[in-house]
Amino acid sequence: MSCRLFILIVGTAFLYSCAPSLPDDVETAYNMLPKKVEFNKHVKPILSDKCFACHGPDKASQKAGLRLDIADAAYAELPETPGKRAIVPGSLRKSELFKRIITDDPDLIMPDPSSHLTLSAHEKAVLVKWIEDGAEYKPHWAFIKPEEHEIPDVADEDRVVNPIDNFIINRLEQENLSLSPEADKAILLRRVSLDLTGLPPTIAETEDFLKDKSANAYEKQVDRLMASPHYGERIAVDWLDAAATPIRTGIPSIRLETCRPGAIG
């Protein structure tokens, strides 16, 4: 064995031996996580639900001067404990956040028991993996340029019709779930009609769809429904409801009466 290989083996063994151990339930949950933990999808919901109440942007409720909603603040030296940092990307041992979510000490554990919030084993595992992988913060998904993702392989290839199915089936397989049997045509038309227009299909529309044996029969129904004025009405309902409901900030709501013909001008 060469000297270089020996050093590599010893160094690797030392690295793993120094890695902090995880509670059994957290380790089990950790082993079930996807290969990559995404901030907006997996991490931010946990921080928002369980951490931001005490360590978010609201200074009035902020504790220990710690903010976890901003990367620079989370990585910075803790104001009340110089030399320590809440998150050190890539290092569990140096990250106070890791120590606080893993400990059983009621005086140290986070979230604070007085908040009546707790982290599940899965949530702890997600935060652990996120820190290990570099604790990368990302802006809101709406400001992130879309990227083309590699289409995942799935075991149930017979149910794949288009690439979107690969992503859906892949997630179901991760959760040990499977697709339900495909609904018959009448039910499919009823579902898409209610979803897009809020109205059930007529008998004539159902009969026409059942008679259509073309490969794109369903797609033609979707196009028909989206061309209907009822589709616009269905999509506008939520916005009209929001406009007619008083906004909690105190801004007066828009009264629907102003939308009547002749009410404006």
Results as ranks from 00 to 15, higher is better:
P139W: 00
L172N: 07
I169F: 15
D49V: 04
I254T: 14
D58P: 05
D133H: 01
S193E: 02
S120N: 06
N162H: 09
V192F: 01
M1C: 10
I168P: 00
A29D: 10
A121S: 13
D107L: 14
K185W: 00
V43P: 00
A135K: 02
M1E: 11
K213R: 07
G265M: 10
I264D: 03
L97A: 07
S21I: 08
W239S: 09
L172G: 10
Y30K: 13
K59T: 13
Y75W: 14
S17T: 12
G90W: 01
L199M: 12
M110A: 09
D195F: 15
I9W: 13
N216W: 05
D223Q: 14
L108I: 11
F39N: 04
I251G: 00
D24C: 08
D58N: 15
V161Y: 02
P146H: 09
P89C: 04
K220N: 01
D241R: 14
S91M: 10
V192A: 05
T245E: 01
Q221K: 10
P139R: 06
F52C: 08
G262W: 01
S61D: 11
E96N: 07
G11S: 11
V154K: 10
E205V: 04
A215G: 05
M32S: 11
E136K: 08
A155Y: 05
C54D: 06
A186Y: 07
A204C: 03
R159Y: 12
Q62Y: 08
D153V: 11
A204M: 05
A215K: 02
E38D: 11
P23S: 05
E77F: 10
P34Y: 13
P181M: 06
T118D: 15
Y231W: 15
S120Q: 02
P113G: 12
T81L: 15
D107H: 13
I251C: 04
Y75N: 03
P152F: 14
E132P: 03
G83P: 08
P57A: 15
P113D: 10
S2L: 11
P106F: 12
N176C: 12
P139D: 08
A53N: 09
F167T: 01
E257H: 04
M226A: 03
K145D: 14
P200F: 14
R224L: 03
K50P: 08
G134F: 02
A215C: 04
H42Y: 01
E147W: 03
K220F: 00
N216T: 15
G265K: 07
F98V: 11
L225C: 07
V10H: 01
N216G: 00
A204F: 14
E207W: 02
A121W: 11
Y30S: 10
S193L: 09
Q62K: 15
E182P: 02
L189P: 07
K41A: 09
K145T: 15
K59C: 09
F52H: 03
A243M: 06
S180A: 13
